[in-house]
Amino acid sequence: MEKYRFNVFGDILLIERRDLAWRCFAVGADGKLGPVDLAVPSEVSHEELPQYLYDIFHEGASLSDGDIFEIL
């Protein structure tokens, strides 16, 4: 199983790949995970995730919210 964390305009998302499916979770300030209703197509690669997330979330972000980047 692959797991990746992204800062998405100030919110933290954990995206994991299990078999061929992506699952998305919001990471709370306490570290708890909550499911996110976000369908990521199975053909999206790890390298394409930042652009995919940008395409989905950019309209709801303000200029002060920053950008999208992977948390290593």
Rank of each mutant, 00 (worst) to 15 (best):
E16A: 09
E16N: 12
D37A: 04
A39N: 02
A39F: 15
E43R: 15
K3W: 06
F6C: 04
S64G: 01
G28F: 08
L49D: 04
Q51T: 14
G34I: 03
G66C: 04
I15Y: 08
F25L: 02
R17M: 07
I15E: 11
I71L: 15
D30E: 15
I71A: 12
I15K: 03
G60N: 12
A26T: 03
V40Q: 02
H58R: 03
I71T: 07
L33E: 15
H58N: 13
G31F: 14
I71E: 11
Q51R: 07
G10I: 10
S64L: 00
Q51W: 06
S64H: 01
H58F: 15
I71M: 14
V44I: 15
S62Y: 02
L20Y: 12
D65P: 00
L20Q: 07
L53E: 10
L38I: 02
L53K: 07
R23F: 10
D19Q: 10
H58A: 00
V40S: 02
F69L: 11
F57N: 10
D67H: 09
E43T: 13
Y4K: 09
V8Q: 11
K3M: 10
Y4S: 01
P41F: 03
G34N: 12
E70V: 14
E43G: 01
Y4A: 05
D37R: 10
P41L: 03
Q51C: 06
G66Y: 04
I68P: 01
F69P: 07
V27Y: 09
I12M: 05
A26I: 02
F9G: 07
S42L: 02
Q51E: 15
A39V: 10
E16R: 04
V44D: 05
L33Q: 13
F6G: 11
F6N: 12
N7I: 07
A26K: 15
F9Y: 15
F69I: 12
L53F: 07
D30G: 11
L13H: 11
F57R: 06
E16V: 05
I68L: 07
L49Q: 06
V40D: 03
A29P: 13
F69H: 14
V36E: 09
E43V: 14
L53P: 11
C24Q: 10
E70K: 11
F25R: 06
V8I: 15
E59W: 03
S64V: 10
E16I: 04
D37T: 11
H58V: 10
D11Y: 07
F25E: 12
G31M: 09
A21I: 10
D65Y: 03
L13Q: 08
I15T: 08
D55F: 08
D65R: 01
A29W: 05
G28T: 11
P35Y: 08
E16M: 11
W22T: 01
E48H: 08
L38G: 06
A39K: 15
F9H: 03
L20F: 07
I15C: 09
A29I: 05
L38A: 09
Y52N: 01
E2N: 03
E43P: 01
K32M: 13
I56C: 09
W22A: 01
S42W: 02
I12R: 14
L13G: 04
L33Y: 14
L53Q: 07
L13Y: 11
Y54V: 11
D37S: 12
L49E: 01
H46T: 02
R5E: 13
G31R: 14
